[in-house]
Design a protein around this nucleic acid. Structure first.
Lengths: 128, 128
DNA sequence: TCAACTGTATTATACATATAATACACTTAA
DNA sequence: TTAAGTGTATTATATGTATAATACAGTTGA
């Protein structure tokens, strides 16, 4: 089951994108599996405290990427293949690692300091 | 001198915030020093290919944080103390590291994989 | 002096994001 | 059967972001 209770709103980027990325990272982690049902738009919006239209926008993008299948009256279900998961994994890992390294380099951090920093915050961050 | 040629537009977050963070990271790296003159709003906007008002918004925020001093007719100059630099360093390092670790954990990446990933992208990323 | 540059401000327009309030057709389960 | 839940769609409003076109007052350097 998908645990949206772990969803942490990080201000800055659009909410619908945060939802989209949260689901994609869950897919990569293997927590969200093929055939699994997503919470309904209304339920998830209530859970996150956002507008139903915002959740709908995230779900519509998942639909366009063919990662979910939606039918009127029933909840949307995940449609995943190994190939899709591998593709998403590359896309997100690439972007997140590249972005983090770029920022740290801009601050004049050394490679060794960067590794130390990641290791230190690894323990600080609550487990997901 | 501040080298804004190294500025890379990353879509997603507002441009004025990207400019603000680019300058703050330059301060942390020690590239941008106390008393130094920033490019004028018009010059920087032309250099980055964005609207002068967008640069002005970033500079206004720097002004509000008392990191620059602006006088009509003259270019704005950096007003930095060791304490301010230390404060910005904590703020940004904290946020960037925390954010990176959170994303990697959400993807089910292990601590060892994360370190490997960072080290691999450290060499990929062009030097700044 | 004075032209060119500077910071600052205003108005208008356009687009993206988010919320709110509905509405309708379909499915599910009691 | 039918009430409740579902996906989907529309309209309106508000806010933030970015651009464009000006305008004005102050500074600088030839």
């Amino acid at each position: 089951m998908i645990s949206f209770e772990e969803f942490i709103m990080q201000d800055g980027s659009p909410i619908y994108q945060q939802i989209l990325l949260f689901i994609k990272r869950g897919i990569i982690a293997g927590i969200i599996k093929d055939g699994e049902e997503l919470p309904s738009r209304r339920v998830l919006s209530a859970l996150l405290g956002v507008n139903p239209n915002t959740v709908q926008k995230a779900y519509r993008l998942l639909e366009e990427e063919k990662l979910i299948q939606s039918l009127q009256g029933s909840r949307s279900t995940m449609v995943l293949t190994e190939e899709k998961v591998r593709s998403i994994r590359e896309e997100l890992l690439e972007e997140d690692a590249r972005s983090a390294v770029q920022k740290l380099k801009q601050m004049g951090i050394s490679r060794e300091e960067a590794v130390e920093l990641i290791e230190r915050y690894w323990d600080k961050e609550s487990n997901l």
